[in-house]
């Protein structure tokens, strides 16, 4: 059977605790005035306290398998991303045991644990790291490639990334949320086929704290370039794009980027920016799931998923819903 790889299922998990932007400001977890961040579109974020990254990753992956009635044995590959090693297994409110790095405990990996606990008997495991908010895009890139080159049928991409419970909740004027997201990529998909993907890394900006101004400045032209490239790679025109499924960064920056792309703001799916904030790498896929569930995205529509990973990676997917 011929066909294109695509995204056949998405599920996500959020921590139980959530806070408003104003509550975060009162708790000293923001650098910017909460009112400014509200003007940028942020409302609430989810904060893991009792949960560990792995626990959320497990919940997201288990939900995906259950909702889609996926046979666990049919998964060929797990691509796991998130905090490394034992840090993934530590609840967010607990201090991390750095001593684990000095022992074989450092080889206790969440990806392999997930394979075991979900009964993914036939799945091998890969880890993806160092891509920040573009990590899930990196996972999908590998998944799609292996589907094509190795004939793998089903890849489960799982990501859980978050900050310690008491950490700051702002990254470059964006309010950050904790979340895990699982995405099933299949070699032959009837929906959400991946038409093209583009990934650009600029190592000059690797030290984001030292080059914060330069990164903010380079963000816009490089983002425009990447989105235009993925549209062209898919064989589309900008006018063909029905929806931009964003990473949940400030609405202000999205409006600017859309303006540079000559795309109307109405094509940006924004519902989750206020209610979830920026969940790092999960945003686009959580948003795609909700946009599909809510009926905003209809079969056959042309979607662009775009994200920027601090450190510094620009990435985009063209998807036919």
């Amino acid at each position: 059977m011929t066909g294109r790889p695509g995204i056949t299922a998405i599920a996500y998990a959020l921590p139980a605790c959530s806070r408003s932007v104003r509550e975060l400001g009162a708790a000293g977890q923001l650098q910017t005035d909460p009112e400014v961040l509200e003007n940028f579109g942020f409302g609430r974020v989810h904060i893991a306290v009792a949960e560990s990254p792995y626990e959320l990753a497990y919940r997201a992956a288990a939900r995906l398998l259950e909702e889609q009635a996926v046979d666990a044995a049919s998964i060929d590959l797990v691509i796991y991303s998130g905090p490394p090693g034992t840090l993934s297994l530590t609840p967010a409110a607990q201090p991390w045991n750095g001593a684990a790095l000095s022992s074989t405990a450092r080889f206790q990996y969440p990806g392999t644990l997930l394979q075991f606990e979900l009964g993914l008997l036939n799945a091998s495991v890969l880890g993806i790291d160092q891509l920040a908010c573009s990590t899930l895009f990196g996972a999908l890139r590998v998944a799609r490639s292996l589907c094509v080159t190795e004939g793998i049928e089903r890849v489960l991409c799982v990501h859980a990334e978050f900050f310690p419970a008491a950490a700051g909740r702002e990254a470059v004027f964006n309010c950050t949320s904790d979340a895990a997201c699982a995405v099933l990529v299949e070699r032959v998909a009837l929906r959400n086929c991946i038409a093209a993907s583009v990934h650009v890394t600029k190592g000059y900006y690797w030290d984001g704290d030292a080059l914060k101004n330069e990164i903010v400045a380079s963000y816009f032209p490089t983002s425009k370039h990447v989105i235009e490239r993925v549209i062209a790679a898919a064989g589309w025109n900008a006018a063909d794009v029905d929806w931009i499924i964003p990473h949940n960064v400030s609405l202000r920056s999205w409006e600017l980027l859309l303006s540079l792309l000559a795309l109307p703001n109405t094509r940006l799916w924004t519902d989750n920016i206020a209610r979830y904030g920026h969940s790092l790498a999960g945003d686009n896929f959580i948003n795609l799931r909700d946009a599909l569930d809510g009926g905003a995205v209809r079969p056959g529509q042309k979607l662009i998923l775009f994200s920027y990973g601090y450190g510094a990676h620009w990435t985009a997917l063209a998807v036919e819903a």
Partner: peptide, 22 residues
């Protein structure tokens, strides 16, 4: 090797929005 992107040419309204955001 810095890979600094060329600036985007845009209309004045968009440019003013960028100024405001900064």
């Amino acid at each position: 090797r810095r890979g600094i992107p060329r600036p985007v040419l845009t209309d004045i309204a968009t440019y003013h929005r960028f100024e405001l955001a900064v």
